[in-house]
Amino acid sequence: MWTAIWAIVQKDVTLEYRRRWLLASAVLFGFLFVVVLGIAYNGKPLPADAAAGALWMVILFSCVTILLRTSSFEEEQKAWYGLLMAPVDRSAIFYGKLVANTLFLFLVELAVTPSFWVILGVPGPASWLPLVVGLAAGAVGLAAVGTFLLFLTSASEGREILFPVSLIPLTIPLLLAVIRLTAASWTRSDDLFVWYAVAGGYLVLFGLVPWLLFELLVEV
């Protein structure tokens, strides 16, 4: 199980590294978004709430493009069937893809987030903890639900649009929690326990549900 997960992660990282222009474009897209936002705000500093929302918009967009890309690796030459024929519990495939996708999302977050206080004049974070936890929980949660939905929508004809359309409503609680955490890191809010709890509970649920349902999902 662990060997299989690790092998899939390594494989995805190698593939992504060979086509690193993709991650670079996702980051560039984020920067461009920030620049347009700066123009729209006429040079005035952005309020913390709006900045947090905008940051997560960028991450959501990157998440959709990156995840659709990594799943296209599997489908180009049906290598996907090779994974399914492996003598391991099939949820290992899910967790392997999940870890790889989390890594890529986290890289994009690391590159894009600083641009918010460099370009948009948002003050540097007053407290780091909610920011870091928010970014990490967001990356893991989006990657988990996203990876699961990628497999769920794999037979769909309109996958490019149905994937985000089903991803966003299902991740609303997570987005709500991480956006509040991000905003709080700029304004120094007090009672954040609830949002840590929501993010944590969400991660536990969507980390375990695929383990139960994944076999059913791929066996057709």
Binding site: T153, A155, E157, G158, R159, L162, V165, L170, L213, L216
Partner: peptide, 28 residues
């Protein structure tokens, strides 16, 4: 969520896969 459920159903041509995907989406 449930509009996405209906759209998803509409977009899968193969009935066996549609049923499984829809059931799982309905549960999640």
């Amino acid at each position: 969520i449930y509009v996405a459920y209906l759209l998803l159903r509409g977009s899968i041509a193969d009935d066996a896969r549609r049923r499984v995907a829809a059931s799982i989406f309905g549960i999640v």
